[in-house]
Design a protein around this nucleic acid. Structure first.
Lengths: 234, 234
DNA sequence: AAATATAAATGTCAATTTTACAATTAATTT
DNA sequence: AAATTAATTGTAAAATTGACATTTATATTT
């Protein structure tokens, strides 16, 4: 077979918007870019799609290279293809956003990428159109987490209801009534109460919960309505 | 500036999943592919992204070339990049799905593409991974239309409540109670009752409605809950 | 040992929304 | 004038949501 003649080929990259939660704020994992152009500037972790690679593979490989983690929640955010987005050469980027348990993240031994967690609200200026990607990823996160049990991906296996609420409040930059919040969350039937309590943050201690894996898988795509009108919060 | 060395460039295409509604069934607009490979086979309308073009531009240009229409509802579905998806040469495709008023569609004078509308349920075998794209587009349509006032894009300016219901029933392949349906739809405040009636399909005739453009724009991204649990319909 | 302080957990009621189900109305056809 | 057909409107129970307060467990202080 021959090739399609008279058409332009271009580079295809993947970029990962990696979210984490430190118990207080939503964080973004960024790296210092190691090559020209824009060497030394803050950037999303990314890489070129290899000849034999699927897009998901490329994104997973890229994420693993930075975080050392496997089996992380990741979904395609969308593709960014403005002609001038990379001044060097036309490059299409397929953006993926990932949610990781920040405690699982280990600084790689070879700190090849000089990675750093930034509060989402206080992230540095990013190269190219990466700020657009981050903004779109945040919007997507808010959108999906309002309907689906997504934010659990940011928490450790065991977590308390108050911890979960702080996470929701960080994501939506809003306060929720704790009575209504816990009722709503528990009514999903997704949580299994543990015998142990978390004792660091209060005298009484808060019971740990774990996800019911079966129900979680089953209901992940259901419409659960965690936040009624996420577009209209104070 | 130099270029990124030792990286593979590839072709980037856009493909459009174009939905229409004929008053009864959900339809898909397909073309007979005009060049090798797979010449003469049924395919989504697509085209290569040009050197100076944004992705959205390429998709809009492609859609307009086939339908003659402008300002059509379109959104990026996602990118498909499996290495072997085009046997000729590695080609990434950014898929867009579009909703058009089928009555606005005019067969182009130069029937360059041999386009044809197919019932979604009875579409022919498609080239490459286009069937995957269609399936994903249908899932996205069902998902979004359950929450947002999206399906109006498939209807003419004036439409009746029964027509709207038939559309919803076609999209979800399910029956809805007409009393509850009309109440739900009218409660959005998006519809403006007209003085005229549609008289073709019933003795009594059904009142036409139009969209309140202001409210439609304002509430398009709000969570309106047209269909409570679209994943769990009979 | 008792009192205090703090955050967790639980409870109530009105308002709204959803669900299930039936009767009435407008206009053509018989 | 009666019959037919599809559009329109209605209603009551059930479930969900939203606003708001009290009780409870435990470490700390007196």
């Amino acid at each position: 077979m021959t090739r399609y003649s008279r058409q332009t080929r271009m580079l295809v990259a993947v970029d990962c918007i990696i979210f984490g939660f430190d118990g207080q704020d939503l964080k973004l994992l960024l790296i210092k870019r190691g090559f020209e152009p824009e060497k030394g500037k803050w950037s999303l972790m990314g890489g070129f799609v290899q000849p034999d690679e699927d897009l998901e593979q490329a994104a997973a490989r890229t994420l693993t290279k930075l975080t050392g983690l496997d089996g992380v929640y990741m979904e395609q955010l969308g593709s960014f293809g403005h002609p001038g987005r990379d001044p060097m050469e036309r490059t299409l980027s397929v953006a993926y956003f990932a949610l990781i348990d920040i405690n699982q993240y280990k600084q790689q031994i070879t700190d090849e990428y000089k990675a750093e967690w930034f509060p989402l609200k206080d992230a540095p200026k990013l190269i190219f159109d990466h700020a657009d990607m981050v903004e779109e990823a945040q919007a997507r996160l808010r959108y999906k987490a309002a309907i689906h049990p997504l934010l659990f991906e940011l928490l450790p296996t065991r977590f308390t209801i108050p911890q979960l609420q702080i996470l929701f409040e960080a994501v939506y930059d809003a306060g929720f009534d704790k009575r209504n919040f816990s009722r709503k969350v528990l009514s999903t039937g997704l949580l299994v109460k543990q015998k142990e309590k978390e004792r660091a943050t209060s005298k009484r201690g808060a019971f740990y919960y774990k996800l019911d894996k079966r129900k979680y898988s089953a209901k992940f795509h259901a419409f659960l309505n965690f936040v009624s009108d996420p577009g209209n919060l104070k």
